[in-house]
């Protein structure tokens, strides 16, 4: 039993130490909300608002592959390529066919 706990504690330290010098940029959602909402916010009048569930993941893939946004507006100056990648990941991970949260009263 003691060995088991010692092993767990050791692994915890390992995790925390690795974590302390590692940073992920998983924050596509924040970028989506700040960068995209400028035009796509409800009532902005610039462009239609939308949520990631608008399309399935493969449709989002196609949207970015074909660079469809550029047909309507070039956003390369407003959103950097790296940011577009994160936004793309966020949209795909929250697409209509993604693993969505379930609870009473959630749409």
């Amino acid at each position: 039993m003691k060995e088991f706990i010692s092993l767990i504690i050791l692994l915890l330290f390992l995790c925390i130490s690795v974590q302390s010098h590692t940073s992920y940029a998983f924050d596509g959602e924040a970028l989506f909300k700040t960068k995209c909402a400028g035009c796509h916010a409800n009532g902005s009048g610039v462009a239609q608002s939308f949520a990631p569930v608008k399309y399935a993941s493969s449709q989002w893939e196609r949207f970015f592959e074909r660079n469809k946004h550029e047909r309507k507006k070039d956003i390369s100056k407003e959103i950097l390529p790296e940011e577009i990648k994160l936004i793309k990941n966020y949209l795909i991970n929250h697409a209509a066919d993604s693993d969505r949260p379930i609870a009473a009263g959630l749409k």
Binding site: C15, Q19, T22, S23, Y24, A25, F26, D27
Partner: peptide, 8 residues
């Protein structure tokens, strides 16, 4: 979840 984008 994913505290400060650390994966923790």
């Amino acid at each position: 979840s994913n505290i400060k984008n650390s994966g923790l």
